[in-house]
Amino acid sequence: MTQDVVADDIPHDLAGWFGKVMVVSKPVAIVETGAIEAFAAAIEDANPLYWDDDAARVIAGGRVAPPALLSAWTRPNRWAPADEPAERPLELHFRVKERLGYPNAVVVGASTMFMAPARPGDIICAEQVLAGIGPVTQNRLGEGRFWRLLVHYRRQDGVLLGTETLKFFGYGDAR
């Protein structure tokens, strides 16, 4: 995205979303040892920080979760027994896509910066921020726009564990 904001080219209300936390996900899981071990087993990662309490205590002050699991602790369940509707993952992405009128969107880039490890017992929430919207452009998918979201992952005491940067391309028949 060469240009993040095109203020005269986007809906006025959308311009007010830039740089603000627009969505905070509800915590849906507590970081726990069983999930850490299941993930490490699935990818055949023998790192002692995931398996060995004594070694992890010496190396890092205790067990840590694999960094690749950071966003998993905040992904909403697709169903719940209560009468509440299920949350959508990356809710802000869907709001931007709908407000711009695009029926389709794809993730075209992702990166994560890690600041501190998630540990067993942590409860993590995700703060979603609109970082930019590019001008209307044309590519092989058709006419559309790029936009960028930042997702800040914080544990229950407010410490920032990491920030994910996601770049999307929305396309199709915009209103």
Rank of each mutant, 00 (worst) to 15 (best):
A41W: 04
V21L: 09
R57M: 07
R119E: 09
F94Y: 11
L130F: 02
V24Q: 12
A86T: 10
T163K: 04
W17H: 12
P89S: 09
E127N: 07
M113T: 08
E44V: 08
V108F: 01
P81S: 04
P135S: 07
G142T: 14
G142W: 07
E164V: 08
N77E: 11
Y171I: 12
V58H: 14
N139A: 06
T165P: 00
P81T: 06
K167L: 14
A41V: 04
P117Y: 01
L100C: 12
V31K: 08
W51N: 07
P120C: 05
V28I: 13
L14T: 06
A60I: 05
E91Y: 07
I133M: 07
R119L: 02
A80R: 14
A68G: 05
D53L: 13
L141K: 14
A110L: 07
V64N: 07
I59H: 15
L69F: 09
G134K: 07
G109S: 04
C125E: 05
I36S: 06
P66C: 03
E164R: 01
A46T: 15
S71R: 07
A68V: 08
K97N: 06
F146H: 03
K97Y: 01
Y50S: 02
G142R: 06
A40P: 13
R99W: 06
T165D: 05
G170P: 10
G170H: 04
V136T: 14
G172N: 10
I123K: 06
T112Y: 00
P66N: 09
Q138S: 09
Q138P: 01
R88P: 00
N139G: 10
K20Q: 15
S111P: 00
S111Y: 00
W147G: 04
R145Q: 06
A82P: 00
E44R: 15
V24H: 13
A110C: 05
G158I: 15
R57T: 08
I59W: 12
P120L: 12
A82S: 11
